[in-house]
């Protein structure tokens, strides 16, 4: 019998999400949560990070601009930027309309996949935002 296991979307307290491409992979896609985009409002500019940049958990790594507000986005875990979503240069509003799909920000090679364990899963994150209200 073959058992399938799907990677789970993980969340940070700074409202970034991270999803491994598949369970065997150490490459993850990163974006901001629906909660975050709804708080920020209409995106007007996405300042993407440089491909190949080494990132340390918690550091400021890119900026989202929405209705006159520039918001720092923080690195969810240690690793390296692999690819950025160039579509956001033309269509920053994808972060609003499709935060978990077309509005992804970048992909990264995760330095230590077990570091994802410390992040919240979807249920925990939902609880976390409820606690914030």
């Amino acid at each position: 019998m073959i058992q399938y296991s799907f990677p789970e979307r993980k969340f940070t307290e700074e409202h970034e999400w991270l999803l491994l491409k598949d369970d065997a992979s150490d490459v993850a896609t990163v974006g901001v949560s629906d909660f975050a985009q709804s708080q920020l409002g209409d995106m007007v500019y996405v300042e993407l990070p440089e491909v190949g940049r080494a990132i340390t958990k918690g550091e400021e790594m890119m900026v989202l601009e929405s209705v006159k507000a520039a918001s720092d986005v923080y690195a969810p875990v240690d690793g390296e930027v692999v690819e950025v979503n160039n579509a956001l240069e033309e269509r920053p509003e994808l972060v609003n309309s499709s935060p978990y799909d077309k509005g992804w920000l970048f992909t990264m090679k995760v330095a230590d996949v077990s570091s994802l364990d410390s992040l919240m899963n979807e249920k925990e994150y939902e609880k976390f935002i409820e606690g914030q209200e």
């Binding site: 700074e14 400021e60 006159k68 507000a69 520039a70 918001s71 720092d72 923080y74």
Partner: peptide
């Protein structure tokens, strides 16, 4: 609605911007 302040309902006297962190 753009967070400007206007004078006599017409003339801009103030513009706004912000920076958000953790």
């Amino acid at each position: 609605s753009r967070d400007d302040i206007i004078l006599n309902k017409n003339y801009k006297i103030s513009g706004t911007a912000s920076k958000l962190g953790r």
